[in-house]
Design a protein around this nucleic acid. Sequence first.
DNA 1: GAAGATTGATCGATCAATCTTG
DNA 2: CAAGATTGATCGATCAATCTTC
Lengths: 168, 168
Amino acid sequence: VATARAALARPAKDASAPNSRARVRLWLRLLTTAKLIENELRRRLRVRFGTTLPRFDLMSHLEREPGGLTLSEVSRRMMVSNGNLTGLVERLIESGHVERRPSDTDRRVQLIRLTGLGRDAFRGMARAHEAWVAELFAELDEPGADELMALLARTKASARAVTDEEPT
Amino acid sequence: VATARAALARPAKDASAPNSRARVRLWLRLLTTAKLIENELRRRLRVRFGTTLPRFDLMSHLEREPGGLTLSEVSRRMMVSNGNLTGLVERLIESGHVERRPSDTDRRVQLIRLTGLGRDAFRGMARAHEAWVAELFAELDEPGADELMALLARTKASARAVTDEEPT
DNA sequence: GAAGATTGATCGATCAATCTTG
DNA sequence: CAAGATTGATCGATCAATCTTC
C-alpha cells in the first residue's frame, strides 16, 4: 500500500511535459463536469419527454438546417460514427420525427430533415433544455462564463491541432 | 427558412435566466471539447493497447485503492450505473486484469481489485495516457490551465447544487 | 479507387425488475 | 423495508466489412 501511494505521489518520469500530472487532473475535471451535467440532462429528457440526449442532439442539428443535412454532415457535427447515425435516424423516422430522402444530385447521399411533428416536439424540448442548462450553470457569474468560454475555445483548438494532424 | 433563422436569432422567452442562450452555447462548447479529447484518447487506447476508455477508467480507480473497492463505490466514482459495472468487471475478470471476492463483513458486498497483471498493464497505459493528455492540452499555458481548473470547479459545484437537491 | 451509407458483431450504458442480505 | 449486486431488454456507439455511386 505504501509503495503504491508513493508511486502516485512521485511525479511521472516519461511524460512529455513537465506538469503532465496537473494536465491529467484538469482533463479529469473537464470530463467529470461534462458527465455530471450530461447525466442530469439525459435523466430529465427521459423523465419529462421520454426521449434521449442523442435524439435531442440530432434534432437540434436538423432544426438549424430546415433544408436538410446529409448523414455524413450530421455525423461530423455530432462527432459520432456514420454507422451510429443510420440507426439513430432509423428510430426517429419510426417515431415520425424525421424524414429521409435521397439527394437529387448525388445518388449516394441521403438527406434528412425534421418533420412538422419533429419540429414541434423539438421546440418544446428546447425551451425546457435551455432552462435546465441555465439552472445547472446558475452559480457561474457572467465574467466567469465568458472566461470559461474562451478557455474552452483555446483547449479545443489545442486538441484539434493534435487530432487533425494525421499526414497523407 | 427565413422564419426559422429568425426564430433562432430571437432570444428565448420562457428561459429562467436572462442569458440562457449563452449558457447553452457554453454547455455545448464544454460538451464538444470533452468529446473531442475523449474520442482521441479512446482511439489511441484502442490502437496502441487494444483496450477501451471505460476499462482504463475502471482500472485507474482500482489502482488508487490497492485494498479494493465495492462495486457501488466504483460506480459512484465513475458516475455510471450499477448494472453497467457488473458487465465491465466481468470482462476485466475474463481478461485477468481484475479479481472479485465477497466482503467478509457484509455478504451483499463484492470487493474488486487489480491483479498483478492488471496493475502492470495499467502502469504502462497510464504513462502513455498522461503523455497524450499533455499533448492534447499543450497549447494551454500554465495560468490558463489554472484558471480553467478553477472555473470547472465552480461549474461542477453549480451543477451539483442542482443534482443533489432532491428532497427525501 | 474514394466517398456515402448500411450492415453485423461487440461493447458500453441505462432502466426496471429481481434476489440476497442487512 | 434498504442496500448491494445481478439480470434482461433496449439503445447508443464503435469498428470493420460491404454495396452503391461518383
